[in-house]
């Protein structure tokens, strides 16, 4: 018996060193292991309002956090049974691969490159390109921009998308703040950028509104788990479907995003029941 466990330890060490996913990690984020541990380990942003940020009392808040708390309530019966880990865009994949968190809920856009390294559940949010314009000369659809100037920020998805269209003259800026100032100064008929950003800006700047918010590829934003953890991913999917029946994404929108976006219709942004 003693010899056998020594042998098993050697095998485990070889597997660990060879860079294959460690066996121990599989057990740590299984649903049984999470329940035994008693809390979920979830990575969220701490400085990206309104998705994940820290409020004035030092508590995690935002759209992502709203979902995280509900997941904890569904799985463990208490929304406070979460250990939040601060994440940055650059380390979201690593946190999952190293087994330091169970789930990443950090405005994580699904891309083919990322999907090779982590498993995405069904989306709970989506983002596209929106155009904000002066209410005196509103842009309601892309065709309204024909023959006019459009302000974009160099290198963004909006820049890439509109560069391929003909008939629209692009005015490019490097800084977001400069681009918005240019719109105020009337240097373009509109400004194109991520829908979430233009909505938030329009809400704070009277006389401007977002006439069109679903241009280009609509990118899904989804919770992610460690590659191969299908058990937890399936549980998240089932939970999102279940939450869709009570319009949970809309509740989350009203509670967290509405103060930033104002009275906009959330259909351009939220995904209900994982139904993208």
């Amino acid at each position: 018996m003693r010899k056998l466990s020594g042998f098993a330890a050697v095998i485990a060490a070889i597997i660990g060193f060879s860079g294959l996913p460690a066996l121990a990690a599989d057990a740590q984020d299984s649903i049984a292991a999470i329940k035994a541990r008693g809390f979920l380990k979830i990575a969220v942003f701490s400085d990206k309002p309104p998705f994940g940020f820290v409020d004035k009392d030092g508590k995690n808040q935002g759209y992502d956090v709203y979902f995280a708390k509900r997941f904890a309530r569904e799985l463990l019966g208490d929304e406070n049974r979460i250990e939040f880990t601060l994440t940055e865009p650059a380390n979201r994949v690593d946190l999952l691969e190293s087994g330091r968190v169970d789930i990443v809920l950090a405005n994580f856009t699904v891309t083919p490159e990322r999907a090779r390294r982590v498993d995405f559940a069904k989306p709970y949010f989506k983002t596209a390109i929106g155009v904000v314009s002066n209410d005196k000369t509103p842009v309601k659809k892309v065709d309204d921009l024909q023959g006019k100037k459009l302000i974009v920020i160099r290198g963004t998805t909006a820049d890439v998308y509109f560069s391929k269209l003909s008939g629209i003259e692009l005015v490019k800026y490097d800084q977001i703040s400069d681009a918005f100032q240019a719109l105020r100064d009337g240097r373009g008929a509109g400004l194109a950028q991520d829908t979430t950003l233009v909505l938030a800006w329009a809400n704070e700047n009277k006389g401007f509104s977002v006439g069109v918010g679903d241009i280009g590829n609509v990118d899904p934003i989804a919770p992610a788990v460690r590659k191969g953890n299908t058990e937890l991913r399936d549980w998240i999917n089932d939970t999102l479907v279940k939450l869709g029946k009570e319009s949970f994404a809309r509740q989350a929108f009203d509670a967290t995003l509405k103060p930033y976006y104002g009275n906009v219709e959330p259909e351009n942004l939220i995904v209900e029941g994982g139904n993208f």
């Binding site: 701490s46 400085d47 990206k48 309002p49 940020f53 820290v54 409020d55 004035k56 880990t85 601060l86 994440t87 940055e88 650059a90 380390n91 946190l95 330091r100 938030a200 809400n203 704070e204 930033y260």
Partner: peptide
């Protein structure tokens, strides 16, 4: 150290700034 999930003084500052961005 923020990239290994530590919240040090500069990150707290960024959290405070971003929470007030609007």
């Amino acid at each position: 150290l923020v990239l290994i999930t530590i919240v040090e003084v500069l990150k707290v500052g960024q959290q405070l700034i971003e929470a007030k961005i609007l």
